[in-house]
Every structure is written in C-alpha cells, then in structure tokens.
Design a protein around this nucleic acid. Sequence first.
DNA 1: CTAATTTTCAAACACTCGTTTGAAATATCG
DNA 2: CGATATTTCAAACGAGTGTTTGAAAATTAG
Lengths: 223, 223
Amino acid sequence: MGESAKAVETSTRILDAAELLFVEHGFDATSMRLITQAAGVNIAAVNYYFGSKDGLFKAVFERRAEPFARLFLGHLDQLERQYANPSAKQVVEAFVAAAIELGQEASLGGLIFVRLLARTFVEPHPVLKESMPRRYSELTRRYISALVKSLPHLSEAEVHWRFHFLANAMFNAFAGTNVLRLFMAHPIVNARDPQMVARMLVPFVVAGLDAQAAMPELVDQNS
Amino acid sequence: MGESAKAVETSTRILDAAELLFVEHGFDATSMRLITQAAGVNIAAVNYYFGSKDGLFKAVFERRAEPFARLFLGHLDQLERQYANPSAKQVVEAFVAAAIELGQEASLGGLIFVRLLARTFVEPHPVLKESMPRRYSELTRRYISALVKSLPHLSEAEVHWRFHFLANAMFNAFAGTNVLRLFMAHPIVNARDPQMVARMLVPFVVAGLDAQAAMPELVDQNS
DNA sequence: CTAATTTTCAAACACTCGTTTGAAATATCG
DNA sequence: CGATATTTCAAACGAGTGTTTGAAAATTAG
C-alpha cells in the first residue's frame, strides 16, 4: 500500500490548494478543475486520493483538527498547571495566545483554517455534521468549564451563552470577518492584523464575560 | 410600462423564494430552477424581471436596504431626541430594539435578511461591492459617532474596533450563527430565540464597550 | 531484472448550470 | 372592438460540473 513521498506530496498539494480556495470562494464555487490546476495535479487525482469532492472537503478539516485542538488545549493545560483557579481574563488570554501562535505556525496552515471555520459556521456542510463535534467537543467543554469556574456570579447556562458570543466574536475576529468593510467605503480598522486584533479584542470580551448576570436568579448559590 | 398586480406578484414571489434559499444554501448552491420552482413561476421569469441571477441577488438586497436602514436609524433618532447624551448602553439597546422589531415585522422579512447579511460577511459577492456601502454607510456612521460620544475614555480608532467586534457579535447573534452547534453534539443555548438573544447579549456587549481602553495613550485629551 | 503494484493522465461520461429564443397567452389602451 | 404592449411558457443552447474509465507511466517488491 502506497505511502511514497511522491504520493504524499500529491495529496498534500491538493489539500493545500483546496483549503485556500474553499476559504476564498466557498465549497460550491470552487470546482475540481480549479483545485487540481492550482495544485498542479491531474483532475482525477482528487477522486483517486479522497474519493470525491465531499471527501476532499472532509479531509481538509480532518488534517487540521487534531493539531488545532491540541494547540488550544495545550495553552489551557499550561494555564491550569500554573494557577489552581485561573481568572476569565487568563482563560481568554490563553485562547488568544493559541490563536496568535496558530497564525505564526505555517505548518498548521496559519489562520487560513480559522477563516475556513468561520465560513463553515454560517455555511454548514452535511459532511462535517458528525466529525466536527467529535473533534472539538473536548476543546469546547474544557474552555467552558474553565470559564464556569472563573465566573461564579453566572449560572452555567449564562456562561454557555457568553461563550457562544465570545466564540463567535473571536473566531470571526481572527478570521478577519469584517462587517465594516462591507458597510463602509473606507473602514479604519485593519481586521487582518492578528496582533492588533488580539490587543483590541481581549479587554472587550473579558469585560463582557465579567459583566453582571443578565439572569442572576438562576445562579446556584450553593457552590 | 407594466406594473400590473400580477407582474408585481410574480417578481415578489421570486424575491421571497430567492431570499430564503440564498440564506439556506448560499448563492452558488441555489439554482435558478430551485428558486423558480419554489416561487411557482417559469424559469425564464428571473431573467425577464431581474436580467440575471446576479441581478436577482442584488435585487434581494435592494428591496430590504432602505426599510432596514430606516428602522435602525429611527430607533437611534428617537433615542437622541430623548437624551442629549445617550449612554453606550442606550445606544446598544436602541440597536437591539430595532433588531427585535425587525424580527417581528413580517413585512420586512423578519430576521431572514439579517441571516443573509451575516452570510454575506464571510461570503462576499462582487455584485454588492458598490451598493452596500452606499446603502448602509450612514447607518454605520451614525451609530459609531453615537458610541464615540458616549465613550470618551476611548480613542475614535478604538471605538471603531469595538464597533467592529460588536457588529460581528450582534449580527451573528441575531442571525442565529451557532459556533457551539458545530462544536458540540448537544449545545444548551437556543440561538434562534431573539428575545433570549437580546436579553443575554446586551450586558455582554455593553460591558465590552465600557471596558478600559486597550490603547489609552491614543485618547484625545482635548475634547 | 522481472512482476506486481501504485500513481498519473487524457478523454469521455451523464448531468446540471444560467441564459436565450420565439411563439402563445394575457393585459392594456385608444 | 382591434391594436399594442406585457407577461408567460416549453424547449433548446453552449458551457461547466463531478466522476469514471482504461491505458500509460512510475514505483515497489521479490
């Protein structure tokens, strides 16, 4: 069974090209001929290595899932090794530090995969329905429970809501999703500078997490 | 030139069906045959009324633009008539109240158009490049300048950044964009309940706006 | 080196895409 | 009414879609 250097190189080139083009134009607007042409391979290679276009899409996500989760969990592990009860701010900073590191690590695809994730949030593909929760539920659960512990003035349900807002905000922020660029002719903010995004984002979301409860009556008083 | 009841009804049915299907499947994955079938009209009707599929897409946005902007500006106008210097919280509440009203107003398409906007942020279409800023720049400018006035501890640039985060968070929140649903098998939050979204969202983003400046050195001390 | 296996490739497959056509049906107007 | 303009419709257009095929090329194993 072939795992030769040449074969790996071919499937990798396809994955790289596909990842970039899926981000840029979306799944449907990206044709097999465009992908294989960009990768410099024959069009039949996609079906040979990945079975189908759907299979390729799934493979693009599969390749990134494990290193992605490990990177973000690693920062949380390190934090919880240093502090028994990390603050919400520290948890957010761990997440942001992981995002920054991801953006600098070319071997992980940089922020391209974050952009692909951000696209997938509003443009779900049935192929990912099963694999995504399996790959990322631990990551999500760990960050949420860290926040639950650091925000005792909030009910667990409200922490889930805030994590929902926070995750949307942060993924879109690092993906460079720019509402202003669509709404204004000349927006001031440069949404594609990760360092700047991190600097501006942290105080915003930390204050949002620390804010008073919207539904204080639900907080468990016994903990 | 025809503006008969039947003709208007036909083009309206096309717009309604297209709006819904573009939200659900995106521009490329929505075929003309699917749209016209859902609208109960002949396939040639789209080209007859809107020239092309691109023209239809543009028309879907054009129909909503003016009422949408007027609704959100109306709430801000009312606020500024009542208060000379409204707080950031009041500005946010005006925006949220407009979103809630939009969701209840079937004649404005409810929240479907908000979902379409949220999709367009990460999936831009060249056809909208020119028309969107023309339609929404006043709306954006007005809300930003209201926030600039209500947040004197922030530089104008930092207010732009926070509005950038806020707009992303709020549009995606009301659009029901759900990161958790993709990452977890059984998320707790019900992201499609506008009343609940509003209740949980306001304290989060208001605290984020009121937070200390990330770059305090840039604040103009002379104002 | 020979044989078996893996990978590449050009060509063609059936199918769907957005758009156009020209005539039939309907509505408008003098 | 008859004449004119508007709207609907079935059918077809060329182009592009993902996928399959079978043979050629390259690599690996004995």
